[in-house]
């Protein structure tokens, strides 16, 4: 997995250093970067911020700048330091005069709080397109992953839990490891469907 960074050679070198720091010496850190960005986006989204992607990028930019300025960041793990900065970014965001945090009352008034009901024909059309993309993305998975994701989500409630236990035993992994694998495959599918089938980024540096 690679991550794109376009800019001057110095900026690219700085970014590469940031990736190495995030990866804590275990490889180039691109995967860790994407994972951290996703965690931050979800964090800001759970806080009902209107622009979670922008805030996640702002957080990572600040961490990267700080690393560049200080030469090293000590006293906290990279992930924990990212959270500390994210919290500041969130507090600043909340203090902004335009109050960009969504209130549930405002949502209810604006009608944005719940999915807007489209006509049944339009809904079916969109659903059909999404399903077609998903089927395409599923075909792109290797057969072991495809089998695992279907098996992992088979059944409901107790039956589903029992299925997962059996699947973990069959694969000789823990339930936790199985859950992480299933989540990764599902995330891959979600990204693929959202991106219309494109789910890789290229490193230009």
């Amino acid at each position: 997995m690679t991550v794109e960074h376009q800019g001057s050679p110095e900026a690219r070198a700085e970014f590469r250093r940031f990736l190495n720091w995030l990866g804590e010496g275990a490889g180039p850190g691109a995967e860790k970067y994407l994972e951290m960005r996703q965690r931050l986006v979800r964090y800001f989204d759970r806080k009902n911020c209107l622009t979670p992607d922008e805030l996640a990028d702002e957080t990572l930019n600040r961490v990267s700048r700080r690393l560049h300025e200080e030469g090293a960041i000590t006293g906290a793990s990279p992930a924990h330091y990212c959270y500390i900065v994210a919290r500041y970014v969130f507090l600043e965001y909340r203090r902004q005069p335009e109050q960009r945090q969504i209130s549930l009352d405002a949502l209810a008034e604006s009608g944005c709080g719940a999915p807007r009901a489209a006509g049944p024909a339009a809904e079916d059309q969109t659903q059909r397109q999404r399903l077609r993309r998903l089927e395409h993305c599923l075909r792109k998975l290797d057969s072991a992953d495809r089998g695992l994701i279907f098996e992992y989500y088979r059944g409901e409630q107790r039956v589903k839990i029992e299925n997962r236990r059996r699947l973990a035993a069959r694969l000789a992994i823990t339930m936790n490891a199985l859950s992480i694998r299933a989540c990764r495959i599902r995330q891959q599918l979600e990204d693929c469907v959202r991106g219309g089938g494109k789910n890789t980024t290229e490193f230009a540096g």
Binding site: N48, G113, A114, L189, V193, R194
Partner: peptide, 19 residues
């Protein structure tokens, strides 16, 4: 469901269930 991103997750889950 108040977040567009989370609504998108629900739509994905609907498609995934259908698949």
């Amino acid at each position: 469901l108040s977040s567009p991103r989370r609504r998108e997750k629900v739509r994905f889950a609907e498609s995934f269930l259908a698949a």
